[in-house]
Simulated scan of single mutants.
Amino acid sequence: MSQWTAVSRTQHADSYFWPRQGYGFAAQEQVVPILIAELTKLLPHYALAFIQQGEHYQPVALTGLGGERNLYVHSDGRWLASYVPSILRGHPFRMAKADNDQPVLAIEQDNLTDDSSAQPLFDEDGNLTEKVQQTLNFLTQCDKNRQVTAKASQLLGETGLIEPWPLKIERGEGREPITVQGLHRINEKAMNELAAEAFADLRKHGALALAYAQLFSMSQLSQLTERAKFHEKHHAKQGDQSANRDIDSLLDGDDDDLTFDFGD
C-alpha cells in the first residue's frame, strides 16, 4: 500500500525524487476517479460509472473487468488510450490534508530519495523546482474541480438519480459473461421525470453534465473488451511488430502533460 509524506522545505531541502515512468503504479486499478472538467476528454475512451463510498458517490472511469489487471496499462507501463485521467498524471505527487486541514503537496514515499541522480524537490534558493511547481499548480486546479465534482455527485445521489448497475459484459460464443459488482449508474427514467426546478438545480451545479456523460459513456464498454482481447492476444508476444501495431491502434497521441486545459 502506498505511503505518502508531505513535502517540506525544512525536511526535504536536499531531497530528490524519482519521476513517474509510465503508469505501472496503476496496473491493478479497476476504476479511476474522474473530474467534471475532463468529461469531454474521457468520453471517447472510457465507460463511466459511480461507486459508493459511505453515503456519497464517486464518479469513476472503468479500467478493469473485476480481475487484477488494469486493462488500460500495458506491461511496459504505457497507457492504452490517448487521454490519461488527470488523477494519474500528477504521480508521484498528490494533494493531501495537513493537520490544520489545509491542502499540502505530498509525495509517495517510495519515490523520495537522497540519490542526487534523481530530480531535486527544491532549488538552491529553497523554492520548489520548476517541474515540482508545475505539478503543484496542476494538482491544485484538479483539487478545486474535485470539490465541484463531489458536490455534483452528492446532488445526483440526493435527488435519487443514482441506481445500482448490474453490469454484465458478454464475451462471445462459448465464453461466460463477466459480471462486474459494485457499480452504479444514472437512472435515465427518473432523470427524465424530474421537475423543472430540480432539473435546473442539477444544471446549475454541473451535475447535469456529469449525469449525461455517464449515460452517453455506456456505449464505450467495448473499449474494455477491446483491451482485454489485446492483453490476451499479446501476453506472450512482447516486442513483436504486430503487437506494436495493435498498440498503435489503441493510441492516438499522448496526452501526458500537466496542464489543466480540458477544452471546456
Rank of each mutant, 00 (worst) to 15 (best):
residue 87 I to S: 11
residue 47 A to L: 00
residue 201 D to N: 13
residue 177 P to N: 08
residue 146 R to D: 10
residue 81 A to N: 03
residue 50 F to M: 02
residue 23 Y to F: 15
residue 158 E to D: 15
residue 169 I to K: 09
residue 17 F to D: 11
residue 37 A to H: 11
residue 55 E to W: 05
residue 217 S to D: 03
residue 186 I to N: 06
residue 235 H to L: 12
residue 21 Q to K: 15
residue 84 V to I: 15
residue 79 W to P: 03
residue 36 I to R: 11
residue 252 D to N: 11
residue 148 V to S: 08
residue 180 V to Y: 13
residue 195 A to T: 07
residue 59 P to L: 01
residue 192 N to Y: 05
residue 117 S to V: 11
residue 107 I to Y: 01
residue 141 Q to E: 14
residue 70 N to K: 10
residue 153 S to W: 01
residue 72 Y to K: 04
residue 245 R to M: 14
residue 185 R to I: 01
residue 249 S to G: 12
residue 259 T to Y: 01
residue 148 V to D: 12
residue 149 T to D: 04
residue 201 D to W: 07
residue 118 A to P: 09
residue 33 P to T: 01
residue 238 Q to P: 00
residue 108 E to T: 05
residue 237 K to M: 13
residue 6 A to F: 09
residue 242 S to R: 13
residue 221 L to D: 00
residue 215 L to A: 07
residue 24 G to V: 08
residue 257 D to K: 10
residue 114 D to M: 12
residue 53 Q to G: 06
residue 109 Q to W: 10
residue 112 L to P: 10
residue 168 K to E: 14
residue 249 S to A: 15
residue 67 G to Y: 07
residue 29 E to G: 04
residue 64 G to Q: 02
residue 176 E to N: 14
residue 108 E to Y: 12
residue 196 A to I: 14
residue 31 V to Y: 01
residue 120 P to N: 04
residue 149 T to I: 00
residue 97 K to R: 15
residue 112 L to D: 10
residue 132 V to P: 04
residue 10 T to A: 11
residue 259 T to S: 10
residue 98 A to I: 05
residue 55 E to D: 04
residue 122 F to S: 00
residue 164 P to N: 08
residue 111 N to I: 02
residue 99 D to M: 09
residue 79 W to S: 02
residue 110 D to T: 15
residue 190 A to K: 14
residue 196 A to T: 13
residue 32 V to T: 05
residue 222 S to T: 15
residue 163 E to N: 04
residue 79 W to A: 00
residue 32 V to K: 03
residue 20 R to F: 07
residue 65 L to C: 10
residue 134 Q to M: 04
residue 65 L to F: 07
residue 94 R to D: 06
residue 245 R to F: 13
residue 146 R to Q: 14
residue 144 K to N: 06
residue 188 E to I: 15
residue 73 V to T: 07
residue 40 T to K: 07
residue 240 D to K: 11
residue 85 P to N: 02
residue 138 F to Y: 15
residue 237 K to V: 09
residue 66 G to N: 11
residue 18 W to F: 14
residue 198 A to S: 14
residue 224 L to M: 05
residue 134 Q to R: 12
residue 255 D to Q: 10
residue 200 A to Y: 02
residue 150 A to K: 05
residue 193 E to F: 01
residue 235 H to A: 14
residue 196 A to W: 05
residue 91 H to I: 09
residue 112 L to K: 02
residue 173 E to G: 09
residue 175 R to A: 13
residue 56 H to E: 04
residue 117 S to C: 05
residue 125 D to K: 09
residue 69 R to F: 07
residue 43 L to T: 08
residue 205 H to P: 03
residue 227 R to M: 10
residue 101 D to I: 00
residue 28 Q to R: 10
residue 199 F to D: 12
residue 185 R to C: 11
residue 83 Y to W: 08
residue 163 E to A: 13
residue 231 H to M: 10
residue 37 A to W: 06
residue 141 Q to Y: 08
